[in-house]
């Protein structure tokens, strides 16, 4: 209810220019955790080139602390790196809600937090997740692998990000089911002794 559903996608992808394919936008997020390796990886030539081959012309990076600690030089290097591949790069640390950024993106590259995964998959956006290997109790990896096995997303490491982005076949991704609250509702109603709802 909080995100105005009427917000149109920003002009970035707006009027299609001549015969060229629609310009695409990629969004990278590390959530609230520290994941400098991912922030660095998306600045590498290999990943930028891979994004370019997908038609990506703008890239937004939510990089957390890594971006907060950027000095002017590093920030400039990041934009200059993108410019070499014709990609507008924008980076910032945090925002209260990333929903609008997910909505705007044609491709999301993310840490493997379950909240982010649910939000992005429910918007039916192509998603590449990179479980953070520096998290000790790494059940992120389990979730990423399980959802990748079911075909809902792709998972990789920072080292294989470029290949994964390049070879990503959006059509092969299996749509993730929308939220269905009825199972929890029915379970709780049953547990609390309510008679079952009459079938509609």
């Amino acid at each position: 209810m909080s995100g105005p559903p009427s917000t149109p996608p920003p002009a970035e992808s707006g009027p299609a220019t001549e015969s060229s394919p629609r310009k695409k936008h990629a969004f990278v997020t590390v959530g609230s955790t520290r994941f400098d390796a991912l922030v660095q990886a998306v600045q590498t030539d290999a990943v930028l080139a891979a994004l370019r081959t997908r038609g990506v012309s703008s890239l937004t990076v939510q990089g957390g602390e890594a971006v907060r600690e950027f000095n002017a030089e590093q920030l400039q290097a990041a934009t200059a790196g993108g410019a070499r591949y014709g990609i507008d790069v924008e980076a910032w640390a945090y925002k209260p809600s990333l929903q609008e950024d997910y909505e705007r993106a044609d491709l999301v590259i993310s840490h493997a937090g379950s909240g982010t995964i649910l939000d992005v998959l429910r918007l039916r956006k192509p998603l590449v997740v990179i479980p953070n290997p520096s998290l000790l109790d790494n059940h992120q990896q389990e979730l990423a692998d399980a959802l990748a096995d079911l075909g809902h997303l792709k998972t990789c490491t920072v080292d294989t990000l470029a290949q994964t982005v390049e070879s990503l076949d959006e059509a092969s991704l299996v749509p993730f089911p929308q939220f269905d609250g009825s199972r929890f509702r029915e379970m709780l109603d049953e547990e609390m002794g309510y008679p079952p709802e009459p079938p509609k």
């Binding site: 909080s2 209260p96 809600s97």
Partner: peptide, 16 residues
């Protein structure tokens, strides 16, 4: 309260 039947309310972004 605004929409009692809506079971797919988005709560990921808290209002301020």
């Amino acid at each position: 309260a605004a929409n009692p039947d809506n079971s797919t309310v988005r709560i990921s972004s808290p209002i301020s």
